[in-house]
Design a binder for these strands. Structure first.
Lengths: 134, 134
DNA sequence: GCGCTTAGTGACAATGGCTTTCGATGAGCG
DNA sequence: CGCTCATCGAAAGCCATTGTCACTAAGCGC
């Protein structure tokens, strides 16, 4: 329950499959998409397990996740461990990671000014990327 | 389709009921909560209509909405028409509206730097308010 | 007032992402 | 090898929200 090393206790085939896939794909994908990709490559993994594994990886900080306005959650492997935000193209899904330390500080400060503690925040930027604008 | 005044074309009893309720309650409430309140006060309005009316009001800028991490959407009447963000207490739901023009500018600027156009963003701050911390 | 047109309504079904359930499976230890 | 318990996964459940479509009534012209 408190393995400080990986956070994952058992090495199962299913987790290996999910990790292998994540190593190969770029950009954000939904759990459902990833599950379908696994099926396509003949990897026999249940949707439930995909969800569980992804959540596990997010919790241990090995995955990066973002939430679309519609509520759907997207995942991709972390390219930078620092906290950051996403600039996502509405059309093609292309994603740029942006550091926003100024925003972080602002959010924390505003919250504290109002007596809030244990502060967290969400911030996503949406737009149409140059390619899709054409 | 382009009434610049209200945006609402017909005055129905149901819309009046929803508006009347919104005028009386403070803070954010979900569509479901509002619907239940309407039933409690003997106002006969369908859930579908509540959703439609709320969306209509959000579109015309008369209502303010925010989305919980869980995906549930909350509404309340606008206290300020300028664009702003929310600082929400995780426990009691108390909400503070915060202007964040610096954040707006930052988001726009970052997006444009990456060639993105038609830029929008979402930002919510969560925390535990002073009262709930005790 | 009186129709008529059509926006608006609402009971119900459907959607969709995600979670729960619970019996089956297999990883890893001794 | 045998055992135990974390893990798996098919199916059912959850739940806010949206779609369907027959019905209702707002408000216009008369």
């Amino acid at each position: 329950m408190s393995q400080a090393t990986t956070g994952m206790t058992r090495n199962t085939r299913q987790r290996a499959e999910v990790l292998a896939l994540l190593r190969e794909v770029d950009g954000f994908h939904s759990a459902q998409q990833l599950h379908q990709m696994l099926l396509d490559r003949q990897a026999r993994v249940g949707l439930t397990t995909v969800y569980r594994t992804l959540q596990l990886l997010v919790d241990t900080g090995e995955l990066d996740s973002t939430k679309l306005p519609g509520g759907e959650q997207l995942y991709r492997r972390c390219s930078q461990s620092r906290h950051h935000h996403h600039l996502v193209c509405r059309d093609c899904g292309r994603t740029v990671e942006v550091a926003g330390s100024a925003v972080e500080r602002w959010a924390d400060q505003v919250a504290r000014q109002h007596g809030f503690t244990d502060v967290g925040h969400t911030m996503e930027i949406f737009g149409t990327c140059g390619t899709c604008a054409a």
